[in-house]
Structure formats: C-alpha cells, structure tokens
Design a protein around this nucleic acid. Structure first.
Lengths: 126, 126
DNA sequence: ACAAAATGTTAGGCCTACCTTACAATATTC
DNA sequence: GAATATTGTAAGGTAGGCCTAACATTTTGT
C-alpha cells in the first residue's frame, strides 16, 4: 500500500505509539478508549495501518510498530508537542485546550508553517 | 435543518460570500473552479446549505445568501483573515502559504485559541 | 479446567464528500 | 430563431470513517 496517512490514521498511530512508550504494549481496547471510538473501528484502522506497513499484527495477536510506523508516529508526535508548546507557552492556553488544538492542527498545518511556529516558540520562551 | 456546518460546507459558504462581494453574483461553476470540485458536488453542497437556511436558490435559479448565511460566512471569513495575518505578519510566511494554512486551520481551531492568536497578532504588529 | 468476563472480529449499515456520465435548461451567436 | 456552447442537475458509484449487533477468541477467577 501507499504512504500518506489520513488525519484519522495519524491519530491512531499517535495513540498507539504513546501507549507503547508508556506501557510497553497496547491493545485495541486501549486505543478505543483513548480515541472514543468503537473496538470495531479500531480493528479497521489497524488493518489499514498494517497494510501500509506502519505496524504488524494478526487476528487476536499483539500490535508491534515497524520502523516506518515509528518514524511516522514520531513525526506526528513531534508536531503535536511543538504546537502544544506554542499554545501553552506563547498564547497561554490551558494544557488541555492547548492539546486539543494541537491535535487538530497537527494534521493540517504545512511543513513550513510548522517550522516557523516551532522556531518562533523557541525564541519566544528564551 | 440544524446549524453547525462541516468544514467543507464552511468552505463553500466562504467562497460564495467572497465571490458575491467581488462580483455581485456567483454561479455554481465559479464555486466549482475556486474549490476544484465538480459542478455536481457544488449542486449537492448548495442543496445542503439551502436546507440549513444559509442561502436561497432553486434549480437553475440564482444564488442569494440569507441573513443567517451572511453572518455565518462572516464568522468564517474573519477567522480566515486573522489567521492569515498571523501567518504572514508574525511568522513571515508568503501570502499564498499563509492563506492555505489559514483555510485549513480556521475549521479546527477553538474559539479561545483563535481569540488568543488574534490578540497576539495585534499586539505583535503594533 | 472450565465458566464467566473481557477483548477482538466480522458483517452490514449509515453519512459525508467526492466523482463521472448523461441529460436538462439557459445563454450566446450567427 | 435555431444551433451551439455553457451551465446546472440527477443518478449512481467510490472511499473513508464511523456505528451496532452478533459471534469468535482469549483471559481471568475460583
């Protein structure tokens, strides 16, 4: 399968990556709770991510991220982190609100705009 | 019908409003060109917007915005304008890139975050 | 070890937003 | 005032992303 992930799949990947970092493993039900979607939707997303070589898994088996998946997830997570920092430290939003905005904007902002925001934030908080 | 518009419908409304402002009228084909979608998709969107009382139109008739539609469009347009200003004046992006980012982010940013960005931009360029 | 509970999957359906193709109505132009 | 070009619509299809209900598998507790 091809590369570019949808916003939705990026969200799944991000959650999976974060959960594994914290707990070593991740189950469909964890993802389902975190994203407020049904377990069935998680299964569907996992199939898609697997078909795009972002992770490995088989029916009832455990979920493992591939190199490619990890790289992709890190790209998304780092975007999230920087945006969140901007909303919190520069604009002064509450953590929760900053996170929610970061989560939605990370999928649609351009590379260039993202880099500018990061730079700006770093200079600003110095 | 109910209120809240999807990102997509917000885009249609914005284009319609801008086009009317500039040219007095707007046709389906203008919208289609501006948004890079088929004329058929425009018809579909117009039906939805009409059902939500955002505009008036009938088969082969001309398109007129309602009070409600104008209000809604202005809300979206003003968001777009402020965000664009932020990307251009604060971050230093090219006009085109700033506009594209504004266009995508305007649909997902929270009210509070938007207000903060506007304020910040105004203070910054002073 | 085996019943009960938790978790995962499948099937089938819904909605949005897009498309193409074919046809209908309106505008233009000779 | 036709013929032609432009514009608008209807029908039917695709794809993504979600759902519920029913069923399969695995885990847990005694």
């Amino acid at each position: 399968m091809q590369e570019k992930l949808s916003s939705s799949l990026e969200d799944y990947l991000e959650v999976i990556c974060n959960h594994i970092d914290k707990n070593k493993t991740v189950r469909a039900v964890d993802i389902s709770k975190k994203l407020n979607v049904s377990r069935a939707s998680v299964t569907e997303a996992l199939k898609k991510l697997a078909s795009k070589d972002m992770l490995l898994y088989d029916r009832y088996g455990s979920i493992t991220m591939t190199e490619k998946g990890i790289k992709e997830a890190q790209r998304v997570v780092s975007k999230h982190t920087s945006l969140q920092k901007f909303f919190e430290k520069v604009l002064g939003l509450e953590t929760e609100e900053a996170s929610q905005n970061a989560c939605r904007i990370e999928h649609v902002i351009s590379e260039k705009a993202f880099e500018k925001i990061s730079e700006f934030t770093e200079n600003y908080i110095k």
